[in-house]
């Protein structure tokens, strides 16, 4: 088993919480893991990504080779397309719909969505709306993680446990909201896949 995942977003959106949850769950399943992160200049509102590789064998490279990512998870629509050259033939792209318009020349959102829809394997999730609906607007990243769950080959209960671990210090209410968000994301993705 090996999964290569690119997690994309804009500096400040907290994509590392997604990476960290998958990481914890992978460790619980005794899988090996390499997770490269962006620290530094780009964290100031620039494009950021994390290359996450999980496997039952030894992983050599910290970076995912071109054309071999099984999954791109993006918390921002334009950013989801930036890493297409890394996506494998049968790979999936899962993206949130809320744009971060911190540049003056942000493209027309419809054009971006059209590009996403033109891909064979894609899931578009209104993660911010869903997070608001369950009463936890800040849990949109966990909605995205939930949406990625069916593709990860990791037991869902281990992802839930990872979320508990990650938010342990923040108290039970926050944990419950994030678990709800995780479940909501998973349900939508499962529905989309079976379509």
């Amino acid at each position: 088993m090996q999964k290569d995942v690119i997690i994309a977003g804009v500096g400040g959106q907290g994509i590392l919480s997604i990476a960290a949850s998958i990481g914890l769950a992978a460790v619980a399943e005794n899988l090996r893991l390499k997770q490269s992160e962006v620290h530094g200049m780009s964290q100031r509102g620039g494009a950021v990504q994390s290359n996450l590789r999980i496997s039952d064998r030894e992983i050599s490279s910290d970076l995912i080779p071109l054309g071999s990512a099984d999954l791109i998870i993006s918390v921002e629509p334009m950013e989801s397309l930036r890493y297409l050259p890394w996506l494998s033939e049968n790979g999936w792209l899962i993206t949130n719909t809320t744009p971060v318009k911190n540049i003056t020349n942000y493209p027309d959102l419809e054009e971006i969505m059209a590009e996403i829809r033109s891909l064979n394997n894609h899931i578009i999730i209104e993660a911010d709306r869903i997070a608001r609906e369950i009463g936890s607007p800040r849990s949109s990243n966990m909605v995205m993680l939930g949406a990625a769950a069916p593709f990860l080959d990791i037991g869902f209960e281990n992802l839930e446990e990872a979320v508990r671990e990650l938010f342990r210090k923040k108290g039970n209410d926050i944990i419950e909201f994030n678990l709800k968000a995780l479940k909501a994301g998973k349900d939508i993705a499962s529905e989309e896949i079976s379509k």
């Binding site: 100031r44 080779p65 071109l66 054309g67 950013e79 494998s88 540049i103």
Partner: peptide, 30 residues
């Protein structure tokens, strides 16, 4: 990166889809 190394050995790297032209750079900002 692994792709530079593959090319150096003469292995063709099979890239995924190209980045669509609508995508703009997103440099860091205040």
């Amino acid at each position: 990166n692994p792709d530079h190394v593959a090319k150096a050995i003469g292995i063709t790297v099979k890239e995924g889809p190209a980045v669509p032209a609508v995508i703009k750079n997103r440099p860091p900002s205040f």
